[in-house]
Amino acid sequence: MDGRSPLEILIEEGEQINPAILLAEEFMRRDAADLLVAEEIQRAEEILYNARTEIDVIRRQVTAFERSPAHPSPELPLGF
């Protein structure tokens, strides 16, 4: 650990929309009769791969978070 709290780490994480959502929007707007060429198919497959990886990473993190035992904090959170 580099001394940052979990909350700080979370806040500093980069935010991005899953690439499959962006590609879905792009595909929605194109005419299906304009067939995708090989390069476009390859690009889509790469994006799908990255999208799936991101989905799996988040899923694993959520699972790990759910398995984490409850831990008492030394400080009372604001408002309690």
Partner: peptide, 30 residues
Amino acid sequence: EYLSYKARSHDANAAYDYVSAIVSEQQKYA
């Protein structure tokens, strides 16, 4: 097709399935 997609939640899994289906159909059109 577009409006029914827009009306759904933009969930990454749904988008993934949608793009996979488009790629699959495009390959079959070719």
